[in-house]
Write a protein that binds this DNA or RNA. Structure first.
Lengths: 111, 111
DNA sequence: GTGGGTACTTACCCCGGGGTGAGCGTGCTG
DNA sequence: CAGCACGCTCACCCCGGGGTAAGTACCCAC
C-alpha cells in the first residue's frame, strides 16, 4: 500500500461494495435508476427476466443499504417510485469505469 | 427509454464486468495481484478464509477471462506465479472508484 | 361481472458456487 | 525414514440466492 498510497483502503472497500452490488440484478437496477426515478412496474418491464419477487427483494436490499429511495404515493391505484439517493448516485458514478471496462473488453463492439 | 441518449452502452458493460468479477474472492485476488505477482501459496496466505480448491478455481476463471497470467516454472519444488495482464490492470483501475466508494460509505472510518 | 393494471407477499423448489477434507508426486530437511 | 511444503485435483456436501406460481386488495374500463 505504500506503493499505491491508498490510505483508508486497508483491505479495500471493494469487497464491501461488492456485497452491496453483488445481487444478480442490482447493477441493472442501478443502471436503470440512474436515468431517473422509476416505478416498480417500469423496472420490471425495463429489466427483462427479473421476477417481481426478486425485483422487490433486490430493491429492498438496496433501500436498506441506502442506495435507493422508496417513495410511496398513497393514491389509487397504488404508486411507488424508486430513485437513487445521493449515495446511490455516487455508486452509479463509481460503477461507470467498470462499465466502460466491460464495454471495452467484453462487449464485441465495445471499443 | 427514448430519453436516454446513451448509444454504445446498450445494456451497459457493467453486468458483463460483474460476471468476470462476481466470484466471491475475485476482487480480493485482483486487489492482491495489483500489488505485484504472487505465488499460489502466497495468495492463499494473503487471503484468509479461501481454500485451495476455490482459490485455484477463481484463478482459473480469471485466467480464462484474460485477467491474470499464469506462469509455471518447471523447477522443483514446483513454482507458479500469478500476475495481472494489461487488461487485468485496467480492471483493477476501473475497480478503484468502487473501492473508494465502499471505503467512503461502507467502512466505518472510511470518510 | 369480468378482466386488467397497480405493487407486492408467501410458499415452495432447485441448482450451483463455494466449503471440507483428503490425496498426489516430488525433493529437501530433520 | 518421516514429515513437510509445493500446487494443485477429486469427491462430497451444504446453503442460500434466485426462479416459479399463486394469492392479495383496490379501482377502472369494458
Amino acid at each position: 500500500m505504500a506503493t499505491s498510497g491508498r490510505p483508508g483502503a486497508a483491505h479495500c472497500g471493494i469487497d464491501a461494495a461488492m456485497e452491496v452490488v453483488g445481487g444478480k440484478w442490482k447493477v441493472l437496477i442501478l443502471w436503470v435508476l440512474e436515468q431517473g426515478p422509476h416505478r416498480f412496474g417500469e423496472l420490471r418491464r425495463l429489466i427483462p427476466g427479473v421476477t417481481e419477487k426478486v425485483l422487490a427483494a433486490q430493491l429492498r436490499e438496496l433501500e436498506a443499504d441506502g442506495i435507493v429511495h422508496r417513495e410511496v404515493y398513497d393514491e389509487v391505484p397504488p404508486r411507488v417510485e424508486y430513485s437513487l439517493t445521493p449515495i446511490g448516485c455516487e455508486l452509479g458514478e463509481a460503477l461507470a469505469p467498470l462499465g466502460a471496462w466491460g464495454a471495452k473488453h467484453l462487449v464485441p463492439g465495445g471499443a
